[in-house]
Design a protein around this nucleic acid. Structure first.
Lengths: 243, 243
DNA sequence: AAAGTACCTGTAATTTCCTACAATGTTCAA
DNA sequence: TTGAACATTGTAGGAAATTACAGGTACTTT
């Protein structure tokens, strides 16, 4: 094993131990900047992957990213068509940006997005998908002019990404937004997701059918759902209930 | 950094590179046995976490585990109450078995399961949650009489677990079971998940309401669902549709 | 003490869903 | 070519869901 790759192996473990001592997102960004620079990366972004009804800006945790490109990217909703984001949703394995395919027929904007990044000096990059609790999807995407990626360094970066994300999540999102549903509403939605009718659920919970429909109805209102099926789907999607 | 922990750091990266050269699950088990032994582990199991309607036996990928305990565990459905499994679903961070809480009131079987494992020589252990695509949950759980866990070794084991799992998944589950739903059934379920009535969906797809109800009905049959809401929940849970 | 929230229940009208029985045309593989 | 699976549509009746209007209890916060 070369001296260089040994350095990089221990670099990952040192980085992880350093993370626990960092208290703010700025400190994490600084630490990431230093550590990733040793692997040839200049820019990076840590972000969740948005649902159809979310904007990616609200999910970005950390970034050292060309600001103009970031503005253009978010303003135009490029995340919907970005080949890197798309591949990120389909794999758990890290990959280089080059490896993200884009079919000009099904995704005409794909090429333009990749070219746009290249215009900002980000021709090459490495993306590390992160899959969290309850199907939460995120990634650490990095770019640099001269990547130094070997079979040794890739897992090291992977490990750094996982821990950096988790640390950032702890700091920046310590309190997941309060579940807007009451206990009863969650309970009735959960039974509905398991195929129970309002009458069934009423019997299970020892209340009348009418009460169940009332809970379902208020859950529909809170979730802006058109009906029970819609409410269950949204509750599952946003991890408000578990089945 | 001590010589021991440096060995263990490189051990992880060597293990990961070795994985790609392994072609069978037996070879992976052997490699894991050798590598994990250096961290003080004797037994391990790599398994997916079952949904309410699944059995854990069908999701076990690799194991070196006391057979009698495994039989007792699966026969009694201990995975439903195992404190380690429960915590595994709630965190992405590795943890020691000791750290898995069990409330005797809400989970009376929890203590018995932990004691049962101890009877088979598995008093201490380390569990590494693995969160895959689309919310797929799995873990690598390991046990040994004398654990050698330090802030350096824990991330190393974590990394090994992630790559070992992915390699086992590639070998043992190369072909995800075919989606049993037809294109039309998925389409109608998807619109249902978005809150559309059968009449709405019929208008959207340019067919009659009756046709939509037929598709939903056959989807319900295939999914063993009691009604549309149940079918949508199951389809979402098993990643048969995306919304 | 008042206000707010969650929880519970009722009636009634309307809409939507679900199932059973029946049938036609298409596509694809054996 | 000949089933098998799929997509489509129909009728009809019962089950379930949805909405609107109304009201009561219990608990917590202000």
């Amino acid at each position: 094993m070369s001296g260089r790759s040994l350095d990089q192996s221990t670099e990952a473990f040192d980085f992880i131990q350093e993370l626990d001592r960092l208290a703010t997102s700025d400190e994490i960004v600084d630490a990431m900047e230093r550590s990733f620079a040793r692997f040839g990366f200049e820019n990076f972004i840590v972000t969740g992957l948005p649902h159809p009804d979310q904007r990616i800006e609200t999910l970005v945790l950390l970034k050292k990213w060309p600001l103009d490109w970031y503005r253009r990217y978010t303003h135009n909703g490029y995340d919907r068509h970005d080949p890197v984001i798309r591949l990120c949703r389909q794999t758990v394995q890290p990959f280089e940006w080059d490896e993200a395919p884009y079919n000009p027929e099904t995704n005409p904007k794909g090429a333009a997005i990749m070219h746009g990044a290249a215009e900002f000096g980000m021709k090459q990059g490495y993306c590390l998908p992160i899959h969290g609790l309850n199907g939460f999807e995120a990634c650490l995407s990095m770019s640099g002019p001269q990547l130094d990626l070997t079979p040794q360094t890739k897992p090291a970066l992977h490990l750094m990404a996982i821990y950096a994300f988790e640390r950032a999540r702890q700091i920046l999102a310590p309190s997941p937004q309060p579940n807007p549903l009451t206990a009863r509403e969650k309970e009735t939605l959960r039974w509905a997701a398991l195929g129970k009718s309002a009458a069934d659920t009423g019997e299970i919970l020892g209340v009348t059918e009418r009460t169940i429909t009332a809970h379902i109805g208020s859950a529909c209102q809170k979730l802006s759902a058109a009906n029970k099926t819609h409410a269950v789907a949204r509750a599952l999607q946003h991890r408000l209930i578990e089945i």
